[in-house]
Amino acid sequence: MESLDEVIDAMIADRVIHRHRRIWLLVIALVVVAVLVVLATGGWKEKKGRTVPTLTAPTTVTAGRFEYSFTKAEIVQTPKTEYDEAESKLKVYFDAKNVDTEEHESVSIDSQLMLFVPGHGEENVESDGASCHDDKIGWVLVYGLPPESCSMTFKVAPDFKADVVEIGVLQEHYESDNEALGANDKPYWHNEDAAAVVRLSPKVVIDAGENK
């Protein structure tokens, strides 16, 4: 048989639990709504502008183990033929020099070291690779020799037109992986990040197929 005290205690406890229930529900609902609003408006991340310099060609950029002197850009249009669809590519010309003062090693320019930045929220376009020395794909640049003229191509839509294109140049860093995680402490070239953005005014060139 429970005593009166116990009955009163139970009643008080019941009251205490239920007293602020509506407020609690409201607060939780508000938090959920706030999260939804933040997500809908593009997340909590602070939007930063471009943090690397924007340069206009002709210009020289030193990025990682290469020094690039940008000269010109072309939009190469290949008209539709009986066998092939019409296609366009953006071709960027530059002189490249190997300035790897750390390892003095001959190396070819990796296709990941440049990006075409279309802007307007569109995704960056990766390159199809660099060719130097009379259009030799994957040409190896030797440390200590004068610059070679090179070009890099990017696939674009067949009707692509632009007065100005922006090319993002990435730089590798000569550093080692984290030794504390058990990696080798020898530094090497990796960890590419943005070095600069170069603006070029492309000329439209029609490739009638002599080169095919």
Binding site: E103, H104, S106, S108, H133, K136
Partner: peptide, 11 residues
């Protein structure tokens, strides 16, 4: 001896 490392020619 000068520290250069040369790779084979591509092409």
């Amino acid at each position: 001896d000068g520290g250069s490392v040369y790779q084979p020619v591509e092409g």
